[in-house]
Design a protein around this nucleic acid. Structure first.
Lengths: 213, 213
DNA sequence: ACCTGAACACCGTTCAAGT
DNA sequence: ACCTGAACACCGTTCAAGT
């Protein structure tokens, strides 16, 4: 068996002074632990040990534990944005539905990531890069809404307000799904997601009582 | 200045062996700390010290820290249910809107309570009393939906599914509000709540294209 | 029954010192 | 520049002992 040929060394070779790309390895390992066992079990000491590095080495790359979590959240928003954009594609009402489904799907596939992103771990206005990534994902939604409005497929309220509302809906479904509150009641996440997106579409449809022909 | 005449002694009188109602005092103090500084700063040692009690006295009343938090969450669901019922009153479409507003209001007024209730601190199926309280609040919503359906004021989908959807909407708004993501964008929580409830109403209205007279 | 005090096995973080 | 190892000030939890 040859060792895994991962692009980056996960573990420092003993005796070697430098790790190579410790920052990336730290992030990767943090995500792995969070994914596997939850945020609250993440300890910096265990991360260091697993990487074959002293427990204080981390402080060369992150100010503290909160900074590490912020970096994880930032990465989460980046991936989320990409998946939203992929679902949206060239745009349209059906693709908008797909975007909503992709949102919930992301949360369900990366529950711990999602919790770090929205769990209140990122306080105040700490990291500008984080804020940029988060608002980037939000912007993908706003853009889609404006597109639909121009096509006459969505009511023409303030796009920002619509975006916040729609975000709240998928965010709510995602959170309940992660907390297991949906399946606990005999329903499935997919069913609820479909239903929610259908209600959402009805609720945001253009109110053209008399459609101009 | 006479001392506050609170019904229960917050602090044990030194020398006295029993506290009086330590369980209630612990709960009360935990809520105070969480409210003031957030869940993550809550330490059992500080709680004990503030109550003038050893740091292990707590274990006579709660199995561990998680059990204390579960008790806080349970109390939160109880208060939430009461406030939802108060807003609903004798029922009706307007009262249903008031119920939604009351939900968001509760979250905004008790953000740390709310975080404990939904932050994933309560794992698995630990406390039956907690589960009962949580599903009691949910039931208030289901009952209101059935009422509206009978009155012909809401579409007649499965009430459970509708309830989950509506819960997701207000939950989403509440979470975004608590995270400061709404005001961060120049909007107010009240505006978004109003808008969301309006869209919600449109999306769940009975689809009677031809209304029977 | 209820509370105490010492002890255990952990944390995150700091800091002088090494390479 | 980057990493180390000891140390500091914390945690939650246990347990024999007191009343």
């Amino acid at each position: 068996m040859s060792p895994s040929k991962a692009a980056r060394p996960l573990r420092k070779r003993p005796g070697h002074y430098h790790h190579g790309d410790l920052r990336r390895a730290l992030l990767q390992e943090a995500v792995r632990v969070i994914q596997a066992q939850g945020v609250e079990t993440l300890t910096l000491r265990a991360v260091g040990e697993r990487l074959g590095v002293s427990r204080t080495a981390l402080y060369r790359h992150f100010a503290d534990k909160a900074a590490l979590l912020t970096a994880v959240a930032r990465e989460g928003f980046r991936v989320l944005r990409l998946e939203l954009l992929a679902a949206w594609g060239t745009g349209g009402l059906d693709q908008f539905q797909a975007m909503g489904a992709a949102y919930v799907h992301f949360a369900v596939e990366h529950p711990s990531h999602y919790r770090v992103m929205f769990g209140g771990f990122v306080k105040g206005e700490p990291d500008p890069e984080f804020a940029e990534e988060a608002s980037g994902a939000f912007q993908a939604l706003v853009d889609a809404i404006v597109f639909l409005q121009k096509a006459g497929d969505m009511r023409t309220d303030d796009p920002m307000q619509l975006a916040q509302y729609i975000w709240a809906v998928v965010h709510g479904v995602a959170m309940l799904a992660i907390d297991g509150q949906i399946e606990h009641q005999g329903a499935t996440v997919d069913e609820l997601t479909r239903f929610a997106l259908e209600r959402l579409r009805t609720g945001t449809a253009p109110d053209e009582v008399t459609r101009p022909v």
